[in-house]
Amino acid sequence: MKNFSLTALLVLGALIVIPQIAQAQPGRQRPPQVVSPEVLEDGKVAFRILAPNAESVRLVSPDLGNLNENGALTKNDSGVWELVFGPVKTPGPIRYRYNIDGVTVTDPVNRETSEANATVFSMAYVPGLDFMQLADVPHGTVAEVTYFSKVLDKFRRMHVYTPPGYEKGDQSYPVFYLLHGASDSDDSWSTAGRANLILDNMIANGEAVPMIIVMPDGHVGRMDRQERGMQMQKFVKEFADDIVPTIEKNYRVKSGRENHAIAGLSMGGAQTLDIALNDLKDYGYVGVFSSGIFGLRRRGPEASNDQPTWEEQHLEVLKDPELKQGLKLLWFSTGRDDFLVETSRASVDLMKKHGFEAVYEETDGGHTWVNWRNYLRQFASQLFQDTPAEAKK
C-alpha cells in the first residue's frame, strides 16, 4: 500500500512539472492559425499563408487574370501574409498558388486541389451559380480508373463519372467522352470544370438524361518546352485502341452511335474532331469548345510540309452522305475574345462546305473555364434525347 501511494505521488508530480517545463522552453509557442482561402460576404476572397521568413509572396492564378499589379500579399506582425482579392467577377472555382521568393507552392492549409499536366493547383470556390453548386440532389460517382495502354506501353489514368443509381441497378447508359485542354489533365473536368456537379444538377432538374462521362488524359506524357506531351495523334490512336475498349468492357454502355457523344475544349476540341472523323459511324454527337482544326493548311507541328492537309486526310468521310445522316449534332461554341475564334470559324466553314449541318454559337468572353462550364451545360442538354432539353440560362 505504501509503495502504491509513493508511485502515485511521483506520477502526479510529473504531470504537474512537465507542462511547466514545456511552457518555459523557448520556441514552443503555438503558431498563428491560418484560414485560407476564405470567401467573404461581399464576393471577395482572402488568401493567406504563414511564411514569417519570406521576403515576398504573390498570388498566382490562371483564373484571375493579370495579377502583376494586384497579386502581392502583405505580411502582418505574426508572419501571416494576406491578400483580399475581388470582388470576383464570375462565381465558380478559382485555381491558385503562391510564389514565395521565387518558388511556386500550393496552399498548405487548403486540401482542395486541381491537377494539371505538370503541376497541382489549390482551389477556392466562390458560390453564386446554382447550376454547378453542390446541392441536395442525388449524386453520381467520379472514379479514378487505372488501365494499361498498349499504344503507349504504360499504365494510364482516366476519371469516369457514373450517374446517380448506377451502382444499384443493371441498366445500361449512353456514354459521353469529355476531353480537356492543353496543360490540364484527366482530373481537370471534375475539379476546375465541376462536370459531375453540373450533370448531377441537370439530371435532377430534368435538363439532361443520365449518362456516363469519360474524362481521359489527353496528354501522352509530361509537357515541356518541346511539347512532347502534345503528341495528339498518339492520343487519338490510344483513344480508339485502349480507352474506348476499356470503358465498353467495364461499364454498362449502350451500343449504337445514337448513344455515343464526344466533346473537348481547346486541344481536346481538336482531338475530338480527329477522333470523330476517324470513326464517325460511332458518334452521334460531337462538340467542339473554343477550338477547331489546328493548322487547316497542314496537319500541324507534328507534320512535315509534304503531308496532306486535314481536309485531304479526312476527305472520304467528309464526302460520305450516309455518315452525315446518322450525326445528330455537330456543335461548336467559342468566345468572341478567344484567341482561337478564327480557327473555330474556319473549321465551321469547312464542315459546312462538305454538307455538315454544323451549329455555331459565339459567346462573350475568352479562352476560360467560365465559358467551358457553360458550354458543357448547353451541350449536355442536347444529348441522347429526341427532344433536347433546354439548359436554363
Results as ranks from 00 to 15, higher is better:
residue 285 Y to D: 02
residue 184 D to F: 14
residue 28 R to M: 12
residue 243 I to Q: 00
residue 107 D to F: 09
residue 121 F to P: 07
residue 339 F to T: 12
residue 128 G to C: 11
residue 137 V to G: 07
residue 232 M to F: 04
residue 176 F to T: 15
residue 204 A to I: 02
residue 339 F to L: 14
residue 351 M to V: 09
residue 339 F to G: 14
residue 170 D to R: 14
residue 47 F to T: 02
residue 78 S to M: 11
residue 92 G to W: 10
residue 106 T to G: 15
residue 261 A to W: 09
residue 105 V to Y: 14
residue 56 S to N: 15
residue 205 N to E: 07
residue 78 S to D: 14
residue 48 R to M: 06
residue 342 E to A: 04
residue 224 D to H: 00
residue 83 L to R: 04
residue 58 R to M: 10
residue 263 A to K: 05
residue 350 L to N: 03
residue 160 V to F: 00
residue 227 E to G: 06
residue 323 L to F: 03
residue 108 P to V: 00
residue 325 Q to L: 12
residue 304 S to R: 04
residue 188 S to W: 06
residue 380 A to W: 10
residue 39 V to D: 07
residue 150 K to T: 11
residue 77 D to L: 08
residue 318 L to R: 01
residue 260 H to C: 06
residue 320 D to E: 13
residue 277 L to Q: 12
residue 338 D to G: 08
residue 197 L to S: 05
residue 248 E to D: 10
residue 110 N to T: 04
residue 53 N to M: 13
residue 250 N to P: 02
residue 170 D to W: 04
residue 160 V to H: 00
residue 272 T to M: 10
residue 218 G to T: 12
residue 176 F to Q: 04
residue 16 I to G: 12
residue 33 Q to H: 10
residue 203 I to D: 05
residue 179 L to D: 00
residue 101 D to L: 15
residue 15 L to N: 08
residue 188 S to I: 11
residue 103 V to N: 14
residue 47 F to H: 03
residue 133 Q to E: 14
residue 221 G to M: 15
residue 305 N to I: 04
residue 269 G to L: 08
residue 247 I to T: 01
residue 244 V to G: 02
residue 341 V to N: 03
residue 226 Q to S: 15
residue 126 V to Y: 05
residue 309 T to R: 07
residue 240 A to F: 01
residue 21 I to G: 09
residue 45 V to F: 01
residue 119 T to Q: 12
residue 239 F to P: 00
residue 124 A to Y: 01
residue 344 S to T: 15
residue 219 H to S: 09
residue 302 E to S: 13
residue 169 G to Y: 07
residue 157 R to S: 13
residue 370 V to I: 14
residue 63 D to L: 09
residue 329 L to W: 10
residue 112 E to Q: 11
residue 233 Q to I: 11
residue 57 V to A: 13
residue 364 D to Y: 12
